[in-house]
Amino acid sequence: MDPAELRRGVDERITATLRACQVPADAVVPFPPHPGVIGPEPGPPGVERLRAGMRIDRLPPGTDLFGAAAELWRRGGCQVTETHTATGPALTGVDPQGYLLHLTAGPPAVLVVASPPLPHRNRGLGPGIAAGVILGPLGTCLSFTGNLDTSGGGSPLAVWLWLPFLLLIGGLLLIRPATRRFGAGLLIGGAVTGIVLSGICSSMMIA
């Protein structure tokens, strides 16, 4: 599934629900929904749901919030149930496309919509560690051999020349969310293996 399409689906369902409940545009505030706190429960390991929420600070007089939302959701083919949670009465809908809709009465009322589950998009920690395990020793070996003079000696500090480059590459990868886990894995794998091997090489040169 295309995450951008799922995000549009979430936004469309929020907009349609607010319109059906006649909620003024200036009466809502974006609300960051935390899975398991308000709204649908977190998905199983390995999957995620794109979520968006709105806090409804004001309703027109006489508005039946649950009635209007339930009618709209049922017209769209949702299975609608009403429950009572720690935050008060709640209305939950599951539409045919797998979107979850959750409305709490408040005050303030909160509307949360979650997309159908999709695989985690960011799984780079393992590959990053594997790459670091390779690059750490490789950088150490290149620094070590490049530092040897004709007599077989050299500066023990020079075997650490690879470390700033690893930190630079890993730091740049940490900036972007899409590569953050890979960058963290690269730093972990490279630091553990490279530092151990560089320490051994430095000890050999000092001895």
Rank of each mutant, 00 (worst) to 15 (best):
E82K: 00
A109G: 10
W73V: 05
L91A: 00
A90P: 01
T87F: 11
P96W: 09
G93W: 00
L100E: 14
V94Q: 14
Q79F: 09
A68D: 09
G88C: 03
R75P: 09
A109K: 06
A69M: 07
V80E: 02
G88M: 02
Q79D: 14
R74I: 12
P89L: 01
L101P: 01
L100N: 06
Q79L: 12
H84R: 13
A69D: 04
L100A: 15
T85V: 05
T87L: 13
F66H: 04
P108V: 02
A90N: 03
A109I: 11
A86P: 00
A70I: 04
H84S: 07
A70N: 05
Q97C: 10
H84T: 13
H102G: 02
L91T: 01
R75K: 15
A105Y: 02
E71S: 14
A86K: 01
G67V: 08
T85R: 00
G77P: 11
A109H: 04
G76Q: 12
A90H: 04
L103P: 00
L101G: 05
A109C: 12
T92M: 10
T104K: 01
G76S: 08
V94M: 14
A68K: 11
T85W: 00
Y99F: 15
T104S: 07
R75E: 15
T81R: 14
A68M: 09
L91Y: 00
